[in-house]
Design a protein around this nucleic acid. Structure first.
Lengths: 203, 203
DNA sequence: ACCTGAACACCGTTCAAGT
DNA sequence: ACCTGAACACCGTTCAAGT
């Protein structure tokens, strides 16, 4: 049912969908606002009625990515037994899986496609929401006496950094390994998370 | 002493220098081959005599970044006392410092500016060289009985992932912290590396 | 052998004009 | 109120022509 109305009706969402689809295929770097508009069935200037510029549309999609990841952490926490440390491990593995499933979204979220976030407070808020899910888990682990009593920000950032770096190295194919398949990634994310929890040094 | 010769003499290096300078200021995403050529004092088509295309020039610069980082690891290892674990920690902190000093170079090295490395074997080799410096350190630590006897790739990737993720989160300003100054970074990289070594879980 | 200038097919963004 | 089409100042890349 192709709509040939002059007024699209919900062009804002149509642009979001078109952009997400094109980015998922080609990546942020290689997607133009003109082809997004074309995919949404409008002229190349129509998008400016709904987004300030190209970056605002990208920021909108990045925000969605952060909210999805935060929601994944909440769900993972809710459905994982064994206490905060097991939940933290599960969230770490879920982060890597998210990156593998939506590599272009993760790239969009953390690349310099949106260099300055100050113009997008909702994006900062969504990012803080994600950080918050991790910090809560760390706080619970510390309260239970399972995680070190280091400053909570230190522990949170350490855990986040590990899974973040691992994910980026994997999806960017920067690891000197021939075949990076799902089994390898699953094994590796498990091993790395365990080493994070128990330390790389002996006992 | 401005040279007005038709034949530049060493345009290839002049382009490298101009590109590195512009990228250090504006970042890869916002630098065009045309302005690089202009900065080097030649017409916008001249670069194609020395590099296959824009990406080949970027790959050349990224390769240099990897070699510099590998060299930093070698020097840090050579000048750090206390054995492989202390050397590994020092390399980790040096990685973060490199990222802070040359954020745009790190971005270039790991961004999707060069999506497929298969056309640039020297780049892959330089990256492997960097990974090798870390792997050697891990091997030495394991041989001395100081690091866990997990598969060497697991331990190496864990360490690399942590400092890589930490560095990217810091230089990308993705950490929900108001003031990210040098003191904060130095303290944070120290804390994260310690937590990596001893684990985030209690004793 | 090395560089230039014009040309081509693209961009993001703006704005008067159309519906 | 929302969208289009032309226009502007840019891109990367190619190629005949100049030195």
């Amino acid at each position: 049912m192709a709509e040939r109305k002059y007024h699209h009706g919900d062009l804002k969402n149509a642009l979001r969908t078109a952009a997400a689809g094109l980015i998922a295929v080609h990546g942020v770097e290689r997607v133009s606002l003109r082809e997004i508009s074309q995919a949404a069935g409008v002229s190349h200037a129509a998008a400016y009625r709904h987004f300030a510029d190209k970056q605002a549309l990208l920021a909108d999609l990045a925000e969605d990515g952060f909210r999805q990841l935060a929601e994944i952490n909440r769900r993972t926490t809710a459905t994982t037994a064994g206490g905060p440390v097991e939940q933290l491990k599960a969230c770490g593995r879920a982060y890597v899986r998210f990156g593998l499933e939506r590599p272009k979204v993760l790239e969009l979220m953390f690349s310099q496609a949106i260099p300055d976030w100050s113009a997008y407070p909702q994006l900062s808020q969504a990012s803080a929401e994600l950080a918050g899910t991790l910090a809560s888990l760390v706080a619970a682990g510390q309260a239970a006496g399972l995680l070190r009593a280091s400053p909570i920000g230190d522990v949170t950032l350490t855990a986040w950094s590990l899974v973040h770096g691992l994910t980026l190295l994997i999806v960017g194919r920067r690891i000197p390994v021939e075949d990076i398949d799902d089994a390898f990634v699953e094994r590796m994310s498990h091993a790395c998370v365990e080493l994070l929890v128990h330390g790389i040094a002996v006992g």
